[in-house]
Amino acid sequence: MRHRVAMTINGTQYEHEVEPRTLLVYYIREQAGLTGTHIGCDTSSCGACTVEMDGHSVKSCTVFAVQADGAQITTIEGLAVGSQLHPLQQAFWDEHGLQCGYCTPGMIMAAKQLLERNPKPTEQEIRLGIEGNLCRCTGYQNIVKAIETAARTMAAQAGKEVKAPAAVS
């Protein structure tokens, strides 16, 4: 029996008939055609498939697409605005926070949640915040640095946004 599901991914509405067993990650990759979200394990361990669902980071290999019916999803493809990279993307590039790049989309999505909840994390908080995402290339060192850098950039941007109206008035 197939089920009709509709969800918004990166601001675009998608609607398809799916088998109930279709995992959200396959829906995103194969139905929506957004292949930046990767699959690295089958035990919810590696975090390569991390996306944002209704404001929470989730492992999209451990959610059925039918459970996401009506949800707002953001994937790695939804972070940059035009050619303007998200501060996390920019920081991962600047700090050499990736090598093979396979874990990177999930890592960035996990880091995004971390910084939303804790805009000024310590090194240890960063390490714990990405404990659900495995990287085999970097030893995590430059990932941690990238998240620290992004936190500073985002804090500076937020500062500007808060100040801007005052400057205008």
């Binding site: 493809e77 990279l85 991962f92």
Partner: peptide, 19 residues
């Protein structure tokens, strides 16, 4: 120098076999 490989990989537009 920062890597030229990265822009695609950090935006999810890289191409691994499954992609």
């Amino acid at each position: 120098i920062k890597r030229r490989e990265d822009p695609e990989l950090i935006t999810g537009t890289g191409g691994f076999v499954d992609d």
